[in-house]
Structures are given as structure tokens and as C-alpha cells.
Amino acid sequence: MLTIDSVTKIFGEPATGYRALKDVSIEVPEGEFLCLLGPSGCGKTTLMNIMAGFEGINGGRVLLHGRPVTGPGRDRMMFFQDAGSALFPWQTVEENVQYGLKLQRIPAAERRRRVDFNLSMVGLDEHRRKFPAQLSGGMRQRLQIARGLAVDPDILLMDEPFGALDAMSKRRMQGFLLDIWQRTGKTIVFVTHDIAEAILLADRIAVMSVGPDSRFRDIVTIEIPRPRDPSSPGFGEVYAQIERLLGHDLDRHEG
């Protein structure tokens, strides 16, 4: 369980700085797929950085399994949109996945087993001796996921991981992520500004308002059974509902 309890975040001096988040609260139960949705500037990445422990807070509490979060840890793995800059370009696919395991001094045999397991889960076992620069964008993102899963985190924090992919790769990666989520039972917090992507993936969507003083406009539970069909009427209804929630900010921000 990840608990965000009336978190406030100010960049700069408390009195004069930018008030990014105000009194944001949510509880993410084990195994949930939560999407943070909102236009740019709504503080969703800031909130994610707070969950990861990269950013401190100016008020409220962040608890993981009841204990306060004070910094980054192996229990929460962050995945970045730009996999190319997040990966280690001088290491092969296989070495990238081994990195975290070597830090933990896991014996070679167990390491090999976990590398094999995770590479085959993301479908990269045939490419293990390649370097990240030799992979396509979608494959790099899959490698980043395999590298993170190898250290067995409780929560996956994903910051628009498919935002830089073309439409086809994006669709494939969404299906692939759902599959991994169902197989591993991990908790996932997923940042996106793509409404359809959020509906396709999430158990719940936390819709955020534009800053300053961003907060959750609403938290929508998606009841549509999986696999979800974007062309179904139910999907369209939820889409319209969320668009209405965002409406005010969309008018203000588009263009």
C-alpha cells in the first residue's frame, strides 16, 4: 500500500515559490493499476517524483507499507519516457539487466536465471548481446522494464513511458504492459496525458488539475472488463466523462 496523505509541494521558498501540489491524497492498494492523468503542468510528474523519493515535500506524508518514504529505494522502480537516456548505452542488453543484480551481489547462477526470465518476459532474449543503440524505441522501453523488474520492486512508477513511441508501437506496448502486470501482480502508477491510454490500462484514473495548487479533480474507477475495446460504447462514455472533467483546463491550455 502506497499512501499519499495531504501532500503539498512548493518549488523554491515556501512563501514565494511555485505551489505545485496542494493537499493531494490518494491510497494505492497492492496490485492496483493507477493512472495519473492531466494536461502538462498539472504536477503529475512531480507527484511521481515524490512517490519515487526524488523530491521532498512541504507538507503531508508519503507512506509505503506504513513507513515514511525518505528517498529512492529498490522497492519503487521508476521508468522514464526516454529509455535511451535511462539505459546504460555502453552495456549490452543482458548487462543492463544485470546491473541492479550485481549491486545486490546476487550469485552468478541466480543472476543468470533472473536475467533469462526477465528478458524472455519482455521478448528480448534473442537480442541479449546487442547494445541499446541497436534497438528500436519500443525494444529499448522493454529493456528498461526488464532491467527494473529484475530487482523485483513492489511498485512500478512509469512516467509517460510510451509517450515517445509511434501509434502502433504504443498499442503493442500497452498490451504488453497489461500482460506483465497481470502476470506479476505488481502495483503500477502510470503517468499519461492520453485519455484513451489511461482508460485502456487503469483500474482507477486520478484526474489532475493544472497548477499552481494542483490537486485531484476526481478519481474515476474504470469498471469496463478487460480486455477493453476502445471502440465500444462503454469506453466512449468513460472517455466523455473524463473529457468533461478535464474540460476546463483543456479550454485554457490547448493552443
Binding site: A52, F54, P72, G73, R74, R76, M77, M78, F80, D82, S85, A86, L87, F88, W90, Y99, G100, L103, Q104, Q144, R147, G148, V151, P153
Partner: peptide, 28 residues
């Protein structure tokens, strides 16, 4: 790149380990 350093941090690297295994190779 900051994402590279933060990813290493999530993977369990200490500050010294990030410096030696991420920052220096990235500077080559």
C-alpha cells in the same frame, strides 16, 4: 542524463556507485 542516474539509484546504487559506474562511463 538525470534519468540514467536516477534509474541507477532506484536499482540500488549508492552515490559513489553512481559516480563510478554511471557518471564516469557517460563522460568518456
Amino acid at each position: 542524463p538525470v534519468p540514467r542516474q536516477r534509474a541507477a539509484q532506484c536499482l540500488g546504487a549508492s552515490r559513489l556507485q553512481i559516480f563510478l559506474t554511471v557518471v564516469i562511463p557517460s563522460s568518456v
